[in-house]
Every structure is written in C-alpha cells, then in structure tokens.
C-alpha cells in the first residue's frame, strides 16, 4: 500500500489500497458558472441599497435603475439616443474595417506596400486613438465627422494588425501550390490569401467592435448633443446616478452583444476549422 505514504494515517486505514490519485485539475465545470459572479455583485448591490448602506446619491438601487430604464424607453429618449450612438459606431466600424483590411492586404502582399504602410501604423498604434481627439476637433470641428473619424481610427488598427498577421502566417506551401497551379493574381487572392487571413481578420474584428464602443463613449461626452454618452453626461450634471447606470449597463450589453455576433460569424465562417477542434 504505497498510497498510504501520501495520506494521513487516520484515513489510510479506512481507504482501499487503490486510492484515486490526487486531482490537480480545477474539477468539473459549474453549470451557468459565468453568471455567478455578476449575480453575486447584483445581490450585494441590492442588499446595500435595501439596507440603506448605499446612498442613492452615490449609487441608485437596482430597481430604480430598472424603472428609470423603463421610463427612458417609454418617453423615447433612450431609443433615440441609442439609434444615434449605434449609427456612429456602425459607421466608424465600417470605415475602419475597410481601411484596416485594405492596408493589411497591401502590406501583406507587396514588400513596397509593407515598407510604406507598416511603419506609420505601428507608430499610430503606439498613440492612443483618444489622444488624437484634440487635434481632430481642431481639424474637423465637434460634429459627426470628428466622432466617426475617431472611432474609425480606433478600429482600423486592430483590424490591420490581425489581418496582416493572418496574411503573413499563411503557410508558404500554399503559395507554392498556387504557383504550381499557375493561379492568376485574383484567384490567388480569392482562394488562398483571403480565406487564409480570415481567422486573423475575425480576431481583429472582435477587438474592433469593442474598440468602437469604447471610442464612442469618449467622443459622446465631448460637446455632444445626442447619444448615450450625452445622456449620461447630462445625468451627471443633474446627479441622476440611475440614468448613468442605465448608460453603463447599455454599453456593457452592446459590447457583449457585438462581440457575440462576431463570434457567431467566426464559428460559421471557420467551420472548416471547427471540424478539427470538435
């Protein structure tokens, strides 16, 4: 009974000789485990509000937030601001994605393209998109143009980085295959380059969608007259923490939803890969 060396003498006598090995793994997954943390947080928040430990001026009670959200939807302020915000994010995301993808293909397929494009983008990458806001305000004013540009600037970098990386990591054996089949440039792009870079591109998109909402928050709190960020900034002036919380929850939900949407696309578009993973 060699196992008894590892066990305490008290249990060693009761335990059968082939005692199971010590488990080092974290164990079986907990059902709905991902929900436990947030629910716990919510419970503490509710408890704090109910006992009066949390001053409503510091943080409104969860139920107040829910009724406020209902009111905001009913009077049309929330849907209107959400529509404006969503439009800005979508426009910036769209423009940024196209720019990032095109630049990645240019830099990935030609040495000259890489020499010209890659350096400036690496520099841009080191400068936070939001640090450019003062300059953009001077150039473009405080209108929609500035907001969409800021978002697009934040979006195109991750799209470029990951698509470019995806392109560069395409197995050179496939390039050789294309050469041996005498593929034309367009067929090479369509059959080998773009599908090969798709996993990288989609990873970039996951960063990009979250980045788009992030940039949105900032631009909407600067001299804005519409949008969720404006709604929250206004609430700050009137001390309405419930409205601020509604905005925060909304940002969180939008980020989660858009990330989930990209992951869904990822699963469908990369089904050739899933057959390996499953």
């Amino acid at each position: 009974m060699t196992a008894s060396v590892l066990t305490r003498p008290r249990t060693a006598a009761a335990e059968p000789a082939n005692r199971p090995r010590r488990r080092l793994r974290p164990g079986r997954p907990i059902p709905f485990g991902a929900a436990i943390g947030p629910l716990l947080l919510l419970a503490v928040w509710a408890l704090g509000s109910a006992t009066g430990w949390l001053d409503p001026r510091t943080l409104s009670a969860p139920w107040t937030v829910v009724t406020t959200a209902g009111d905001l939807i009913a009077d049309g302020r929330l849907p209107a601001n959400l529509a404006v915000s969503a439009q800005r994010a979508a426009l910036g995301l769209g423009i940024g994605t196209v720019i990032g993808t095109v630049l990645a293909v240019v830099a990935g397929l030609s040495r000259w393209g890489e020499a010209v494009v890659d350096g400036p983008i690496q520099i841009k990458r080191a400068v936070p998109a939001l640090a450019l806001v003062p300059l953009l305000i001077l150039w473009l004013g405080i209108g929609e143009q500035m907001k969409v540009t800021t978002i697009a600037l934040g979006v195109f970098v991750p799209v470029y980085i990951h698509t470019h990386n995806g392109l560069r990591s395409i197995d050179s054996r496939y390039v050789e295959l294309g050469e041996s089949l005498r593929l034309r440039r367009t067929a090479f792009l369509r059959r080998i380059v773009l599908p090969g870079a798709l996993p990288g591109f989609l990873l970039g998109m996951r960063f990009a969608v979250v980045g788009a909402w992030l940039a949105l928050v900032v631009v909407e709190q600067i001299n804005s007259t519409s949008g969720i960020g404006y709604m929250m900034d206004l609430a700050r002036q009137y001390g309405q923490t419930d409205v601020i919380i509604v905005g925060l929850v909304l940002y969180g939900l939008l980020g989660l939803l858009s990330d989930g949407a990209v992951r869904l696309v990822q699963r469908r578009a990369l089904s050739w890969r899933r057959t390996l993973a499953d």
């Binding site: 054996r173 496939y174 295959l177 089949l181 005498r182 593929l183 059959r191 080998i192 599908p195 050739w272």
Partner: peptide
Amino acid sequence: VFQDARLLPWQRVLDNVVLG
C-alpha cells in the same frame, strides 16, 4: 504532386480539385 497532399483546409474537396 507534393509529398504532403497540400489541400487548402478552408476549401471543400471539390474546390480543391478545381483550384487551377
């Protein structure tokens, strides 16, 4: 014909055959 089959993993079998 290479030593490895060198099929494009993201293309279905028929698309691999008609690649060129």
